[in-house]
Design a protein around this nucleic acid. Structure first.
Lengths: 210, 210
DNA sequence: GTCTATACGTTGATAGAC
DNA sequence: GTCTATCAACGTATAGAC
């Protein structure tokens, strides 16, 4: 893995640490992401989260006033993280295609926080009608962030002749769809099966040399 | 859309009709797929399914003995459907790349039953720890079917010089990941945003002409 | 055939003990 | 600070009415 991808990983992690100053809050959120992303919103019981975090069921309510609040704060954090990560990648030194490659490598890293973010993103979609209204609102509101920083990279790449022609927004949507789909498969296959690297994934963006 | 893609659509539909001879069972399953795929397993209440199907809550239990059973039968049906669809596509007249393109078009069609199958597939993954054991077992067991018919198409395409070199299984995993990811995005964007067509999606498979 | 009423278990949230 | 006990709400599944 490249230096830049590792830098991005580090950035993901740090972004999470800044979530809250209270240790208990971070502890709960950290474990709650994990449980929510494996069981879904309705399938997750406060007891599950509490046990993972090493607390009793009731104690969770000292930090959060409801299950909805825990979920909503996680969604907010995940959305912010995804947006910031793309923004960060877009400012690295290199051609657009290089920067996108580094970002992709960081996303596809098996245990990255980024990957968990995408699993959560996925949950909002998979169970779109079963999550708190507030979480939906935030997700809708912040959905555009990653695109805002990704699309300009695509446009610049097209100008440089690195990236195929075509609607940049459409290409960005395709990109994030792919990353999400690969994230899901990675969970399913648990690393037993062969998995594509960033180069293969990005073939659809690369302009063929003449 | 091509004649072949429409043929595939038709095939998906018919495959579902054969699920059960009892009208009530089909009726419930049809609506349950929809609710489950929007709310997740735990988030779906029997009342939701009953209301959608136009029954009272209690009446559902005349056809199924539990919520688990409804979900499990749907997963089984969806898995069988996906396997059969790929098998069907692999036997159409045309080059491997053409057949894969038709299959992809059928998958990406907004309201296809195939798309719903993938949403369900997704749910098993997204909430992998919150679904009935039996459903997990069936999903694991039948996961290989689509691959069994897709991989040979890739190999044939490589032999013909249509498809890029590389581990055929890895390419198949990449393919299904992409389709799944695009299916999710399609739900999210609800058709408001530009969406890639099969040709763009399949760029990663196509061997560049020299 | 289809619905209504209800029993029983589970879970989210609170309040009070240590 | 942290846990235990408990309440109220909800949801599955059943049984019996029409």
């Amino acid at each position: 893995m490249s230096v830049q991808s590792e830098q991005l990983q580090q950035f993901f992690k740090q972004s999470f640490e800044e979530t809250s100053r209270e240790h208990g809050v971070r502890q709960i959120m950290l474990h709650a992401v994990d449980v929510f992303s494996r069981k879904g919103f309705a399938g997750t019981k406060i007891k599950d989260i509490a046990e993972h975090a090493g607390f009793s069921q009731g104690y969770v309510y000292n930090y959060f006033k409801s299950k909805d609040e825990i979920f909503t704060r996680i969604v907010e954090q995940a959305m912010d993280g995804a947006g910031k990560a793309v923004a960060f990648a877009s400012q690295l030194e290199g051609t657009p295609m290089q920067r996108i490659t580094w970002l992709t490598e960081a996303f596809l890293e098996p245990n990255s926080i980024a990957m968990q973010h995408w699993r959560l993103n996925l949950l909002q979609t998979a169970a779109v009608d079963a999550i708190p209204e507030e979480a939906k609102r935030i997700a809708r509101e912040k959905m555009g962030e990653p695109f805002k920083h990704f699309v300009p990279m695509v446009i610049e790449g097209q100008r440089l002749g690195e990236i195929v022609e075509g609607d940049p927004l459409m290409l960005a949507i395709t990109y994030f769809s792919f990353v999400q789909g690969l994230g899901i498969s990675r969970i399913q296959t648990k690393g037993d099966l062969p998995f594509p690297d960033a180069n293969i994934v990005l073939a659809f963006l690369r302009k063929p040399v003449n």
